[in-house]
Design a protein around this nucleic acid. Structure first.
Lengths: 167, 167
DNA sequence: ATAAACTTTCAAAAAATATTGAAAGTTTAA
DNA sequence: TTAAACTTTCAATATTTTTTGAAAGTTTAT
């Protein structure tokens, strides 16, 4: 496999993986492209390499910036804007974990807390409902705590965490 | 909030959350419904409660069974089949982690390994590509190891893991 | 102030995904 | 073996999500 084939395969894979994580294909592909590019890229560069429209590129770049994993970069003497991604994959993982907690886990916790607080009328179905939603709340809270704990650690956390677990 | 409102809200929330995790709405809703139901439900029950078609119910139940989080249950004297979900949320989380590793992480690891193995021709872009795809491979492998480690532990693992991390 | 260079917005179109429902298939009882 | 009870399949349809592209908006240089 040569560079171009490998690059293409990587962008494709990252793109379809994105879909499974609530990130659309173009967004994931733009991210993949920036991640392996040694220099910042312009909107034109991205449009051309991925064969996507200007509007699509603009909107998805904005989302990536919102997620905190892509930055606008100025290049001296150039009028247009350039973009580059967070290159440290640990930092990247942290940022993604943070955003997923904020966007998914927190709102879910809120609902679980709310619905598990209904009055227990003693019926089997109410009892089961309260029991299960409380368990889920607990699970989600623990999972979120672990994630936050990991996220707020110094770099190289993942390896360290893993070593801890092995002990 | 009364039982019916709470139940509805829970099913709705679980349903839209599913979408974010690569599980479709109906599948997540069926799961939610079974999770809080004290007795197994028939296909008719599910169709009626969620207002979805027979075909949809059948296909999504099959997927849930494939995921290992819903079981067919026979009820004595009844001809039709009944379905119930895994009620232990820890077991549920394990099963989901297992499936996600198998379906997403493993295939990704394979591609990352493959593409990071291209020959280094010394150019900046090839060097960056190899460096980044190798880092991602390492990250994904570590994350997967942690998940597997957790998954293969005895029940109550999440809490225990959390306590370990706090130390 | 003007215009060129560039970016963003958003309604319409396209593509992807989920759902339906009826026909085909299967199982069970008699 | 037949038929009733039930489940599965899948082509057609509906819904949701993504993408486009051109108009509107912004910034910069002169």
């Amino acid at each position: 496999m040569n560079y171009l084939e490998a690059k293409d395969k990587f962008i494709q894979t990252w793109g379809s993986l994105g879909t499974l994580w609530g990130i659309n294909k173009a967004m994931a592909q733009i991210h993949a492209l920036l991640l392996i590019s040694p220099e910042p890229l312009s909107m034109e560069d991205i449009m051309e390499q991925l064969q996507i429209s200007r509007g699509n590129t603009s909107m998805n770049l904005r989302q990536l910036i919102d997620w905190g994993i892509v930055y606008k970069t100025s290049i001296a003497g150039e009028r247009k804007e350039f973009f580059s991604s967070e290159k440290d994959v640990n930092e990247l993982a942290k940022q993604i974990a943070r955003e997923r907690s904020r966007r998914e886990i927190q709102p879910t916790l809120k609902v679980l807390k709310e619905v598990s607080n209904i009055e227990d009328d003693g019926s089997a179905k109410t009892k089961e409902f309260i029991k299960q939603t409380k368990s889920l709340h607990e699970l989600a809270e623990t999972a979120d705590s672990i994630m936050n704990r990991i996220v707020n650690q110094e770099s190289n956390w993942l390896t360290k965490t893993f070593i801890k677990l092995l002990k």
